[in-house]
Structures are given as structure tokens and as C-alpha cells.
Computed example of a mutant assay.
Amino acid sequence: MDFALSDEQRLIRNEIQTLCDQFGDEYWREKDANHEFAWEFYEAFAEGGWCGITIPEAYGGQGYGVQEASIVQQEIARSGAAMAGTSITSHHVFSAAPLVEYGSEDHKERYLPRIADGDVMVCTGVTEPNAGTDTSRIETVAERNGDEYVVNGQKIWTSKAQEADVIMLLTRTQPREASERFGGLTLFFTEFNEEMDSVDVSEIPKAGRGAADSNEVWFEDFRVPVEDRIGEEGEGFKYLLSFANSERISIAANAVGIGQAALEKAASYAREREVFDAAIGSYQAIQHPLAESWSKLAQDELMIRKAAWLYDEGKNAGPEANAVKLRSSEDAIEACERAVRVHGGMGYAREYDVERYWREVMINVIAPISNEMVKNYIAQHVLDLPRSY
């Protein structure tokens, strides 16, 4: 058993750190405050060739696995970019994966090289206001009309819909009552932008991640060519589910990176800030919470490495991927809260950044699935307890 990163993985981590050094906390603080998309960061990321990290080399990507992708996500988050930075760059991990695995050769050749080059921004349309966690109840309908599908419906929490060039879109092509619970769902990967007459995009004001927009999207007679369907009609949920564990691992890496960034800020402040003629870092009331959070995040990072290894080896990564999503998201929130408290009143001030980490890290406990549903999974599929929902 070898816990060390390979030379190549260390090189990836170092190169991402070097890239992120160009975009410090001041950059992300300003983007967040002004609600400006971080195009400069995305363009540097694309220029470095990182958009294709998990896309096969045959299509212009680097062909790495989830292990390497999680290292990238963790280092971006740890740099101070937090969830804004990882949200802007994460489509290479999840959104393109169903196309890589299940798309036709023509479909892959049309899109994957452009994604790998960074020329195409991808968004994902899955979540709906009346469905939420129960994906089987989505209401966006795609009706076959000759060589096209006509899509009508609504999506919510569609990140980057304002910048996107393509969308991975989950629709219903058969009524729920006429199929199995998760049957009748069909997945598309197709051209999309907010200027189209058949779509309407409206940004959702939210607590954090101001540098990466989240949106509601309405589709009215949105036309999708049949050749932009991924795989077989009615199999879309199965295609998505096969990549759910990679998304959970990615989310865990994001959370750990943010938690580590918060601890680094807190420790630095504690070494410098003096109260009662001593650095506050000399007091156990400050030291112990930070030490405890460090140990929790260190354990989480080890579980990420294990879960990613299982996934990349084609083994069942479900228990580990869900467990580390649960633990790292909760541990990261705790680390960020403790960092705010160490800073005292200044922890609430934007100039010290820990409040931004605190706001952004909350996303990880509720997305892409709530921690309550993760616990349900572990109870049912690991502990063999009865289904509770």
C-alpha cells in the first residue's frame, strides 16, 4: 500500500498551484463582490490544457482519472478560489463524462476536442424545482418530431448557463406512469446559449460563489437534433448514475481544499494577532479547534485518495465516495466556522476572506445531493437497513 502521490500527480498539483498563484484572494474577493464571472481564471486554466484532464487523449484531452481530477479540484479550492473556482472548471469531471462513455463517435468528435481546448463552456440541466432530490419526477419533456426532439420545461440551479455553449440536459421522453420509476429519462448533449429564442435564463441571487452564476432556465420549443442524444432513449438516468460517485469525490475534494485554505488563514492570523500580551495562537482555546479540524481534513483527504483509486480501478466506490462526501463537507464547514471565530470580528470582514470560504463551503452539504440522502445510502446499501424514504 503506497500513500505517496506519483511523480506525475505531484507535478499536476504543483502546476495547478503555480497557475492559481496568479489569482489570489483579492481577485476572488473582487469577483465575488461584483458578481463577475472569473473569465481570466478560466482562460488561464484552459490555456494550461486542464479542461481536458479526464477526456481521452484521442479527443485532445489528457486522459487522466478521477484521482488526478480530484487533486486539481482540491488545489483550486485551497488556493482561495473556493467553490467559485472549482465550479467554473469542474465540467471536465462530470458534465462531459456521459458523452465520453456513451456518446456516438460522431457526437464525441464534435464536442470533446472543443471542450478539451477550453473553447466550449458546458453547463448541466438536471435539477428541477418540482423534483429536487427525486430525479424520477422531472417534468421537462422532450417529444420526438422527425429528426429532432422538441423540449419544453424548466431547470433550476444550472451553473454557468449565462456563459455556456453546450448543455448536458436530462429530459423525460416517456411519462413516469408508463415506465419504471427512473425509466423514460433521456440525456442530451447539445448546443445551448442564453441568446437563443427558445430559452430564457434568469440568475438566482445566492449567498456565495458570486464569481460563478447559478440560474433558472426555461425551455420553450427548444429543438435538439436526434444525433445529440446520448445513447439510447429512456436510458438517461442510468447514464448519469454511473458517474454519481465521481461527482461525490470531486465535491469532497472541493470541501477539503476550502477547509484547508480556511485553516491556513486562521493559523496565520493566530500567530500574528496579540491579545493580553501574547499571540492568540498560544492559547489552547485557539489551538485545539484548529488542530482538531486539521486532523479531520487529513483523514478526509486519505479517503478521497482511496475512493478515487477504487473508482479509477473500476471497483465499487459507492460506500467510500458517499462517506467522504458526507464527512469532508461537514468537516470543512466546521473548519471554516472555526477560522471565522479565530479572526473574531475581522472574521466577518470581507478583507480576511474566511467569511467567503464559510459562505461557499455550505454548498457541499446540499449538492449534488444532501447529506441526509447520503446517510440513507450508507444505511441501506452498506449497513443493509430497510429503505427509509
Rank of each mutant, 00 (worst) to 15 (best):
F3V: 10
I12D: 04
E15Q: 15
L19I: 10
Q22K: 14
Y27G: 09
F41Q: 04
I55M: 06
G60F: 00
Y64S: 13
Y64P: 01
E68M: 07
S70A: 15
S70C: 15
E75Q: 14
A77C: 12
A84K: 05
T89D: 04
A96L: 06
T124R: 13
P129H: 02
D134N: 14
D147N: 15
G153A: 06
S159G: 04
E163S: 06
A164H: 07
D165H: 14
V166C: 11
R172Q: 14
E177G: 03
A178D: 14
L187P: 09
E191C: 05
F192G: 14
E194K: 15
I204F: 03
R209N: 10
S214R: 02
R223S: 09
R229V: 02
I230V: 15
S242N: 12
N245E: 15
S246A: 15
S246D: 12
A252M: 10
N254D: 15
V256G: 00
L263G: 13
V275Q: 13
Q287T: 12
P289E: 11
E313Q: 15
N316Q: 08
P319R: 00
A321S: 15
R327D: 05
R338A: 12
A339K: 08
V342A: 02
V342K: 07
V342D: 05
R350K: 12
E351K: 10
Y352A: 03
V354T: 11
Y357T: 00
V361A: 01
M362A: 14
I369E: 10
Q380F: 08
V382S: 14
